[in-house]
Design a protein around this nucleic acid. Structure first.
Lengths: 122, 122
DNA sequence: CGCTTGAATAACCCGATGGCTATATAGCCA
DNA sequence: TGGCTATATAGCCATCGGGTTATTCAAGCG
């Protein structure tokens, strides 16, 4: 899977509150499918579907303990998504900082020269 | 919109490569709808829909310049999503570190005592 | 072996999403 | 005013996503 497809899968997986709740639960330790089903008013197959989505995104992996399939979190995919967001967040934060600096500069220097057309309107 | 719904919208918005490309483009500065449409083999209405999704997620905002509607990035929503991921990523990284420490401890102390049943299998 | 339990799969429903074309709206300009 | 340009909206269609129930598969146990 290429980077774009991985991001697609990861963000799509994170876009559902049930799946985020499952991840939150797994953050406290491994759990089986039935354990994960319990807190929700959803059927077991519904949870299995969610788990499959999370697994495809690489956010969880599953072991085998007899008939049980304990799930655990995989930090790697999270790291990728986090890195993506952080990269842009920083970039944009920088841009805003620069823009603010420019505005401050203009304001301080000569308020009357500020052009009203194409107002920036932040 | 509550926190869960905001995360839903943000992650769902980020789960599409076209929308991520739009954000990447906007990271280099404001752009109008037609400018954003140009690089893609998509119709203008398709891009308008994507922009609406991004706007609902709070990832972009739009100004007005005559008939043009320049789009720009909003860092706040990104920050929220990034914070969410980072929180869990750290938590899990911690857990793994601890698990690794435990395993190292066991191995160093008495390799023969490691139970083979319910193998951890990382 | 046959039963019971944990989990996955199948088949289906329905609303949301993403794409299109055609059309409407909005604002400038002659 | 009429016309041109930028964008939004409407209406349509195909696919996807999340839910269900019913069924199947897998593994331990009497």
């Amino acid at each position: 899977m290429n980077a774009a497809a991985r991001l697609d899968a990861t963000f799509a997986a994170l876009a559902d509150p049930t799946r985020r709740a499952i991840l939150a639960r797994l953050a406290t330790g491994e759990a089986t499918v039935t354990e994960l089903t319990a807190p929700f008013q959803l059927s077991q197959p519904a949870i299995s579907k969610h788990l499959k989505v999370l697994e495809r995104a690489g956010l969880i992996s599953r072991g085998r303990d007899a008939t049980r399939r304990p799930c655990r979190i995989e930090a790697a995919a999270l790291g990728e998504a986090s890195a993506y967001l952080e990269r842009y967040r920083r970039l944009w934060a920088e841009r805003f900082t620069r823009l603010d600096a420019v505005l401050d500069e203009l304001k301080a220097h000569d308020p009357a020269t500020r052009s009203p057309k194409k107002a920036v309107k932040r």
